[in-house]
Simulated scan of single mutants.
Amino acid sequence: MKYMMMVLASQADYDAQSGKGAEGIPEWSQKDLQAMFDHMGAINNDLAESGELIDAQGLAEPAQTRLISRGKNGVEITDGPYGETKEMLAGYWLLDCASFERVTEIAARVLECPTPANSPDYPIVVRPIGEVPDTVES
């Protein structure tokens, strides 16, 4: 079964990783960043070796986001970040795992990622990818 496993973050988290901490979000050092990259890299390597990894990507900061929506006068385009949004998708894995239990184990491992003390904790979101039936009745 295929799953999408998603990690969340806020613009302030990206700022902290760039050396600009804020209230409640400590600044990341180069050592902190390297520990995170090492942890995530080890997970990716293990998933590639097991054949469960389809794709994994970190996403650019929310400040580089664009929202395209339908407005009263047609298409509206808004640049991010969005004040009403606490956190956004920061990265994802596309996985092919034998069970929901297995992808849950992987998500728990991601949660063990080292971060600076007092950093915000975000949940990992896991969603099965819908299977399209072989035949569709009309």
Rank of each mutant, 00 (worst) to 15 (best):
I43T: 13
Q57D: 09
E23P: 12
A56E: 06
A22P: 04
M4N: 06
D13T: 01
A35V: 09
D15N: 08
S10C: 07
D38W: 12
Q34S: 12
S18E: 15
M5R: 02
D38R: 12
S29T: 02
K20D: 00
L33K: 11
P26C: 05
A56L: 12
A12G: 09
L8H: 15
A35H: 11
M40T: 10
N44E: 08
A9I: 09
M5H: 03
Q30D: 14
G51N: 09
I54R: 11
F37K: 14
A48W: 04
A9K: 03
E52D: 14
A48T: 12
E52F: 06
D15T: 10
S29R: 00
I54G: 09
K2P: 00
D46M: 09
G21F: 01
L47Q: 00
E27G: 07
D46I: 10
Q30S: 14
A35K: 05
N44S: 09
K2Q: 10
G51E: 01
M40W: 12
D32S: 03
S18D: 15
Q57T: 11
Q11G: 07
Y3T: 00
I54Q: 06
Q30L: 15
P26E: 00
S18K: 15
L47K: 02
D13C: 09
W28Q: 01
K2W: 07
E27Y: 06
E23Q: 13
L53S: 04
S10M: 02
Q57S: 15
S18H: 13
Y14I: 03
P26D: 00
L47A: 06
G51F: 06
S29I: 00
V7K: 01
K20L: 03
V7W: 03
K31H: 04
Q30I: 10
I25H: 07
M40F: 14
I25K: 03
G24I: 03
G21H: 03
A42M: 11
G24P: 00
D13Q: 08
L33A: 12
A12P: 05
F37V: 09
W28Y: 02
E49K: 13
S50F: 02
L53Q: 04
S29P: 04
G24M: 02
S10T: 11
I54L: 13
G19E: 03
A42E: 11
M36K: 09
I43V: 14
A22F: 13
Q34G: 12
P26A: 07
P26Q: 02
S50D: 01
E49R: 15
E49S: 14
D13E: 04
Q11T: 12
M40E: 10
D38Q: 14
L33M: 15
E27F: 03
Q11H: 08
I43A: 08
W28V: 05
Q30P: 07
A48F: 09
S10A: 07
N45E: 11
D38N: 14
M6H: 10
K2A: 02
M40Q: 13
A48L: 10
A12F: 09
A9Y: 03
D15K: 08
A56Y: 04
S10N: 05
P26M: 01
V7C: 08
S50L: 00
A56F: 05
A42N: 13
Y3H: 07
A42Q: 14
I25M: 06
K31V: 05
N45V: 11
L8G: 07
D15L: 10
M40G: 12
D55Q: 13
A12N: 05
D55A: 15
A16N: 02
E23V: 15
Q17P: 05
Q11E: 02
G21K: 04
S10L: 04
E23I: 10
I43G: 08
